[in-house]
Write a protein that binds this DNA or RNA. Sequence first.
DNA 1: GCAACATCAACTAT
DNA 2: CATAGTTGATGTTG
Length: 636
Amino acid sequence: MGSLIDLNLYPDSPLTDAAATAFLTLNVPKLEPKEEPFDEPPNFHTNFTNPNFDSAPNTQPDASKPVEQDVNGNDVYSEFNRISELFNAAFSGKTEKYDETEAIDPDSRAIVPVPEEEIQHSAVVDSSRRRNHQRSGELVRVTNLGLEDERYFRHVVRKTRMIYDSLRVFVSMEDEKRRNNHHVFGRNRNARGDLKSASVMKDRGLWLNRDKRIVGAIPGVYVGDIFFFRMEICVVGMHGLPQAGIDYLTSSQSSNGDPIATSIIVSGGYEDDQDAGDVIIYTGQGGQDKYSRQADHQRLEGGNLAMERSMHYGIEVRVVRGFRYEGSPSGKVYVYDGLYKVVGSWLETGKSGFGVIKFKLVRMENQPEMGSVVLKYAENLRNGPLESRPGGYVCMDMSMKKEKMPVFLFNDIDNNHEPMFYEYLPTSKVVFALERNGGEFAYDQNGLLVRGKPLIFECGPHCSCPPNCRNRVSQNGIKNRFEVFRSKETGWGVRSLDLIQAGSFICEYTGVILTREQAQLFSINGDNLIYPNRFGERWAEWGDLSQIFSDYVRPSSPSVPPLDFALDVSRMRNVACYLSHSSCPNVLVQLVLYDHSNFAFPHLMMFAMENIPPMRELSLDYGEADEWTGKLSICN
DNA sequence: GCAACATCAACTAT
DNA sequence: CATAGTTGATGTTG
């Protein structure tokens, strides 16, 4: 029997039927590792602080600098953009006269020679690899990131995800137009925007972490981050394969010839999987027919062998879990749950009677709570708040039924009930007449904001369109269950019990509108005035496809005069008032008109800039941080 | 229910 | 021996 076990440890010695039959009569046999071929894992580059760009900041945090700038005062995106330009040039037919000896000057946009001493540090991978679109085989573990680096990578990941999401929406809207204009036989199906978006970004060199094989955490991706598409995970460099569940460094790329698994996706696609959270029994890949039925024995090769080798060397593996999830555009969500170690592997008879390879994975210590656990917890809170969390509720609906969904008020820290002292104001008061919408749809079929604009017109009370008209989104009120909660870090904060997809409407920022003159009378007590003209223009970031289309121009119409009013929230306010400030916010403000046509007093509507997991604090860029004392800057 | 889809590792041909 | 081209495996999505 022992020889059978060894026989199956090599990729070129697949399990024969006879061997498998004999083998499977054993009780959960242990797979012995290869005869200790190496004591050491393949070569690693450790303490590698910046896997993307050699010249990115790697310094101690400096709280005095705005996050948008690096230590040299440069725009943090400039390097990102520079690399993108290089890739763009490389993929647009200019490859022949374009190599690492040239670069695009970030200021003049002209092609300039790269100084000799910088060439060998170029972040651009070698030309043959670039041409073949292939990933590098360099094994890297990212450690000891400073706060500044963390923020930098978060920005890059966030920006990349925004491009992916808005391009995906853009592609499906174009496809919808096309199908409406030309009735094509047999092509009524929606385009795969998820695939197309990723593909275009790949051609533009916008996928992250292609030049390294990262073992362990991906910089800028947090435990609990949520993805709606497999391709989205590929684009940020978490998992390089659009379908396969095990991503790995191949033996031919490994310095010692052993393949190494870097990441798995547990999607429940294998009947023999068992998932207990901290401990996963993961089924290897292979042996399924085209209907995803287990129809053959699995072999210890490819990703399966890589998992076994990762176990042998004690190398950590990223775990993403896939769930069915109502409300997701794809019907599923993928949650990054952190790092696990493979602690065991064996062969056993699966439910369908074929040999399957099992891996036991155990979650590593000292990591943030699992995203999938938080998802489950939030679901319990939605179904029975008091059962799941008996203590701490101040009020089960501080809007007093003025919102369509309850707004919970939660405080388990102190006895502060302050939000109850204000009248709840679901929408800012307006008294003018209606303006019609102009031109293209502002929202897609699912009510997602396509791209930010200076001002959006929704249909209003005088339109003859039905109430479920696609052009009525923000006026229909909140769709999520929010909770105002007391926090030691940020005072009051807001979080959602629901998963919020990027581009979704969150809520209006309400208050009593004061003109400049009125506000000046009020300014003795300035704490309770909000100045919307100070809000960061984050709407411009949403749907910014300038890195995809060279002729992309930032929307400039309709032109809106600078906002010249203040919101008085001293007596009446809504849930929005409790949002914390961040220079790396997950919520943006989009100006919207629907019930009147006065450009001077638009509604301040808030939309999600990211996929926001349940229980994660919402944050908004209030502009100058000094103006909003008491609110700390957070970045997650 | 099922076709279309993207990527890559591994293979074959040049 | 190196590189260019092909194929099979993988599972998701509408």
